[in-house]
Design a protein around this nucleic acid. Structure first.
Lengths: 226, 226
DNA sequence: CCGATACTGCGGCCGCCGCCGAACAATCCA
DNA sequence: TGGATTGTTCGGCGGCGGCCGCAGTATCGG
């Protein structure tokens, strides 16, 4: 009985706009309080509380109580992967542009790595230099690529996560770089101040020093359309 | 406006049990008629027709009219991947067993490759022999592995799909083998008659010759619990 | 100890949507 | 051509569930 209903049960949870907004707000891996999530979902706190309870009980969220706050986060990387793969399903008509969408489309975080035009451009640059092979569902970094990244200061952490993984970019419809390599690359770009996180959005800003850096190191122009 | 609502829109479509059943019935890539899908969903044909219209309009299904039949199939590999990744999200309580579930759990098709205990056992066997490296989100076949598979008669087709890809098995919670290699392996097993497709289910039966073959070639006992 | 803040539980309203019965359109076969 | 099969459209019923107002519990600061 579990199998056939599992898909529908999970999907029904995601299918309500308020809950979908909650999950999207948590998509980059941060932990947020119930009130913040209520605001993100656009509903009253008691409504959000009910949603959070359902999501937690279903195992999609984990919760940590700290004082009078309760911090919610995605329970598992598989949850983030699920959200990715749903958003990667092509919309039937070409994507319409939404208010403020260009910033998201240019550069954003995708869980723990960079996505959007910036993420795809980085992946393309590495591919063109022969440092990387990437297809919609597999990827590999060459020895020169590892040396290049080390020289850049992006040393992937050890861990059981896969080294190099593609992630289908839902706005560009092409894979960008994820996995430990993608995370290390993003981390280094943040550390260098090339890109800067913004409040209340997954969009990231590209700093002037980043424009210069991406051009010098990776050979592409990160001044994407406004 | 499209971005934030896209997730909820898609998920709401999957969240209805009837529609989820339709998609699961199409999960292995077959094309089925509207009436067959109505039966699979457990609803009257006119209800199924409405569901199929919505799924098609949303771009999740594609349809081909042949005479008085209309054949529906998943529109895109990304749709199958989405279904996989949703089912891979861990259920909070340990999976309960459902009626007829053991067969599915033992061996089934997952889009175009083998899954369940059989799929995981195949992957484990190849790993143990040093033919394969596989982690939850990446995989690679060694040179000896390619030779072994060629000798077995599983020659992957050319194409732009990734050569070797893991696919998280939702019943075993461990990765099995997908991608062109996984498809070729499954194809060869079907061609040899080791495994046999069943009507109206994604479960596959393991033939006696298969029991012998898996033991000889891959070194594991495919006589899983009933 | 008291007020303020964060969160949860309950009850009731209301709207969306899945479902089926019936009728209609399209195709195949004899 | 006429009956059988497949599939779609329409209309109305019924129920599930999201939402909020209100009330209750826990925690922090002074």
């Amino acid at each position: 009985m579990t199998d056939k209903t599992h898909l529908a049960t999970i999907a029904a949870l995601l299918g309500e706009p308020a809950r979908a907004n909650i999950l999207l707000a948590l998509f980059d891996g941060r932990a947020l309080t119930a009130k913040e999530l209520a605001f993100a979902a656009g509903v009253m706190p008691q409504t959000a509380s009910a949603h959070l309870g359902k999501l937690t009980e279903a195992g999609l969220l984990s919760v940590a109580a700290q004082g009078r706050h309760r911090y919610f986060r995605l329970a598992d990387p598989t949850v983030a992967h699920m959200l990715e793969s749903i958003m990667a399903v092509r919309a039937p008509e070409p994507q319409r542009i939404w208010r403020g969408g260009e910033a998201l489309r240019n550069a954003r975080t995708c869980y723990d790595h960079l996505a959007g035009r910036l993420g795809v451009a980085l992946a393309d640059s590495l591919r063109a230099a022969g440092h990387l092979v990437l297809s919609p569902d597999g990827g590999e970094v060459s020895a020169e690529g590892i040396a290049f990244l080390r020289d850049f200061g992006a040393e992937p952490h050890d861990g059981k996560r896969i080294f190099c993984r593609p992630c289908l970019d839902w706005s560009e419809r092409r894979p960008h770089l994820a996995g430990r390599v993608g995370a290390a690359l993003a981390e280094r770009c943040f550390a260098l101040g090339w890109v800067v996180r913004q409040r209340d959005t997954r969009a990231v800003a590209i700093a002037p020093v980043g424009l210069d850096g991406f051009a010098r190191r990776f050979g592409f122009d990160a001044a994407f359309p406004p």
